[in-house]
Amino acid sequence: MDVLSDVIEVMRTGRPWSAHVRWHAPWAQEFATVPGSAGFQVVLQGRCWLLDSGAEPLRLGAGDVLFMPRGHGHTLADSPATPAPVTPCGPDGPLPSEPYASDSVDRSGAQGPVTALLCGTYQLDPDRAHPLLHTLPDRIHLPADEGRHRELRSAVELLAAELDDRRLGMDAVVPALLDTLLLYILRIWFAEQPARGNTTGWAAALNDTCVTTALAAIHRDPAAPWTVAALAAEAGLSRAAFARRFAALVGRPPLGYLTWWRMTTAARLLRASKAPLRSIAVQVGYASEFAFADAFKRMYGTPPGGYRRGT
């Protein structure tokens, strides 16, 4: 897998939630902060305003995409002057409680202009949060732009169509489309950062061929006996130049990232499979189950068996 796909695979947990909702003006809705999650809003029809504490109201139009990597709370409304209801919404709030739903909501009883939204939440495991997630802003706004982001628009249209028309296979199609939507949002954001002058951190790392080649090698085979010299050879750089470049962009030295990724992968395997500890140790590059257990406990503060049991 490539680095971005692998990161999403490891962080994502549980079942995503999504809804296609139509609001009739006047309307306003608060979306609560949901720790351990990432949320999105897509304006499919009409327009609305994003009202966020401490920021100027932001006008959103059809095709605009909002992404909150850390489940940041916010309010959407037909007008900045419309008061939000007391009860915030989310997967357990006043919007549809089904994992995937389509609904028409009219808070006011009026029949004003319609705003259609595609909204949803991804559950993320905080124990496996990748550092690239920490570098993202609380809110990413991808404005509609004719001729750009075509793949993202196609994913949105397909997802909206599935939520509007419940057909056979929906439980398989919708999660795949939600993951596709998440990947497109992140791909676009990271790809656009160099043009905005962001030349450090993960935004730069994912646009640096040498660093991404080394990262891909680590993600492709975390069990390999990697050394700094071997990773430098993959990247096509001298050992010293590679080590400096990798640490500057990724935020930790190559072997430090390797160990972190091995333990993160192990944590996912412990929770997602019943594989014996010996097997997991081998999959992440440890010949000894005891050496693996020691390394895992240093990172998570609990032995692998306790982590698997949630104790």
Rank of each mutant, 00 (worst) to 15 (best):
A55W: 09
F67V: 01
D64C: 05
G54M: 04
D78L: 05
L66V: 06
H74R: 11
P88C: 10
A81N: 14
V86S: 09
G54R: 10
L76S: 01
P91Q: 06
A55Q: 13
V86H: 12
A84K: 06
L51E: 02
A55I: 02
P69K: 06
R59E: 14
M68Y: 10
H72Q: 15
T87I: 12
D52W: 12
T87W: 15
L60R: 02
L66H: 03
F67Q: 00
L58Q: 12
E56D: 10
H74Y: 14
S79W: 07
P69F: 03
L50M: 11
P83Y: 10
C89D: 14
L51H: 10
L58D: 05
G63Q: 09
P91R: 06
P83H: 09
G71F: 00
C89N: 12
L66D: 00
M68A: 04
P80F: 10
T82G: 03
G54V: 06
L50K: 03
S53N: 11
T82D: 02
P69N: 11
H72E: 13
G71C: 04
P85N: 05
D52R: 15
P57T: 03
P91L: 08
L76W: 00
L66T: 03
R70W: 03
T75R: 05
D52A: 12
D52F: 15
G63M: 01
P69W: 00
D52H: 15
P91H: 08
P85V: 11
E56N: 07
R70F: 08
T82P: 01
H72P: 03
A84V: 02
L50A: 00
T87A: 15
D78M: 05
G63W: 02
R70Q: 07
T75P: 04
P69Q: 08
P80S: 13
A77H: 01
P80D: 06
F67W: 06
G61A: 15
E56S: 11
G63K: 06
C89R: 12
D64H: 04
T87D: 13
R59H: 13
L76A: 01
V65G: 00
V65I: 09
